[in-house]
Design a binder for these strands. Structure first.
Length: 434
DNA sequence: ACTCCACAGGAAAATTGGGGTA
DNA sequence: TACCCCAATTTTCCTGTGGAGT
């Protein structure tokens, strides 16, 4: 018997479809967001008076419904006038330079089988004029949603946005408006005045949900689940409470509920109780960490491995220098080229951003000023994820450039140190691409 | 008051590899 | 094929810094 039979049958028998609890699900009703939706609609409604809507800046913490309400409102706007309005949603975490964003928009504007602009190689001004050419042909209102807009500034400096926002001046035929979404409340201050005044023509703040608001959201979503699984009221309240604790995060509350239901199905319990929610929370934390580790670039994985090993050797505080030293020997051992200490410093910051490390800069007087670093959460779990990771387990040549593997049939010792990088390059060049 | 450790983190140069053109 | 342009990534070089030691 297929081992999945038991579980899938229950899914089918109960007609349980949990997609309404997933992050990508776009609801039709947004409880406690009436004010925000109205404000957004009021701003965008300028298109019906044939004038360009003001640019809009939306802020609020994660899971306060910024992205989904914006998606909903813009979708409704387009429904009102499908011919005259074009909506683009750009996730700036994926497309994080002005270059890639302009290319993305230009390629989305492709009509018929016009050539796609390659993601690399073209000069910036050519992309810009090509985009303008394509835009001015369509004779429409265009609304560009820049989701996680703070990422652009963070990666490219304050001038990056200026180039993009200039589009609304230069596109004479197509009137272009921007909606920026960010969860960084200090974002505005990091902009210089000209960009700020352009972007912040209107702004909407999304306040965090409180526990009772989260409960309303959960109730509404659950009522949309086709099929049923009994859910204790207290379990529902618990999800809401945890979500409220986490800066009013609806996404987390919904995700917890989804996992709790899955746990309940897997364990064959008759209903979802507090116990399932608590187990869901543990599973959630671990999944987040596992995912974060798995998606790291190979070099970051090695730095993290070094941190784990360093902490294991000496459970007291460790600092940047120790991690760098151990990182170097791990590289030697595994046959990876090593990056400079400056780069490792940045990677450590990145790992902190991912929540895998916690750091605090401390001054030790005579003994220098450095960051003290801890592996976040249970370092044994992190180590397990790393050890079972294929990048660190086998080092098959799936990396690129310097990240490729050294041929283990050639003892590392037989290569003079100054030739090692060259050797890696040779092997990489000889590696047949897939 | 002055030094100086061990870095943090900014700026600029250098390297890398895709893409275009001749 | 050789060569130039470009963005992205990494290295090199650099200045700044909090406070224990002297």
């Amino acid at each position: 018997m297929n081992p999945f039979e038991k579980y899938s049958v229950e899914m089918i028998n109960n007609k349980l479809d949990l997609t309404v609890l997933e992050g990508s699900y776009l609801p039709e009703i947004f409880p406690h967001r009436e004010r925000e939706i109205d404000l957004m609609a009021k701003t965008l409604s300028s298109v019906f008076h044939n004038s360009r809507p003001s640019n809009l800046l939306i802020y609020g913490k994660t899971g306060t419904g910024k992205t989904s309400t914006t998606t909903y409102v813009t979708k409704m706007l387009k429904e009102k006038d499908p011919e005259g309005i074009e909506i683009f949603h750009v996730n700036c975490q994926v497309f994080d330079s002005p270059y890639s964003i302009l290319v993305e928009i230009a390629n989305a504007l492709t009509q018929t089988n016009e050539d796609k602009i390659p993601g690399l190689g073209w000069p910036m001004d050519r992309i810009y004029s090509e985009l303008l050419k394509r835009m001015n042909r369509s004779r429409r209102f265009m609304v560009v949603v820049l989701d996680e807009i703070d990422k652009i500034i963070k990666k490219n400096g304050p001038d990056a946005l200026y180039v993009i926002l200039k589009l609304s001046d230069d596109s004479t035929v197509t009137r272009t408006s921007f909606i920026g979404i960010t969860n960084d409340t200090g974002f505005l201050e990091s902009l210089d005045a000209r960009v700020r005044s352009r972007l912040n023509q209107e702004s909407i703040m999304f306040p965090p949900y409180n526990a009772s608001e989260l409960r309303d959201i959960l109730k509404l979503r659950i009522s949309n689940i086709s099929g049923s699984k009994p859910i204790d009221d207290s379990a529902l309240n618990l999800c809401a409470a945890i979500g409220a604790q986490e800066h009013g995060d609806a996404r987390k509350a919904l995700e917890l509920m989804r996992i709790a239901i899955e746990v309940s199905i897997r364990d064959g319990t008759t209903k979802v109780t507090d116990k399932e929610v608590y187990r869901a929370r543990d599973k959630f934390e671990m999944d987040v960490m596992r995912e974060a580790v798995a998606t790291l670039p190979p070099q970051s994985k090695m730095v993290l491995l070094s941190a784990v090993v360093t902490q294991e050797m000496d459970s007291s505080m460790m600092f940047t220098g120790e991690i760098f030293e151990n990182y170097k020997s791990i590289c030697r051992e595994l046959g990876f080229a090593q990056l400079s200490s400056r780069r490792i410093s940045d990677i450590l910051t990145e790992l902190e951003d991912f929540g895998l490390l916690t750091t605090s800069t401390k001054s030790q007087g005579r003994y220098g000023r450095t960051r003290f670093i801890r592996v976040a959460g249970n370092y044994f779990d992190v180590k397990r994820y790393l050890v079972e990771d294929k990048d660190l387990e086998k080092f098959r040549g799936t990396g690129i450039g310097k990240q490729a593997r050294i041929d283990t049939t050639v003892p590392l010792d037989s290569i003079p140190p100054e030739k090692i990088d060259e050797k890696i390059r040779d092997i990489w060049d000889a590696t047949p691409s897939e």
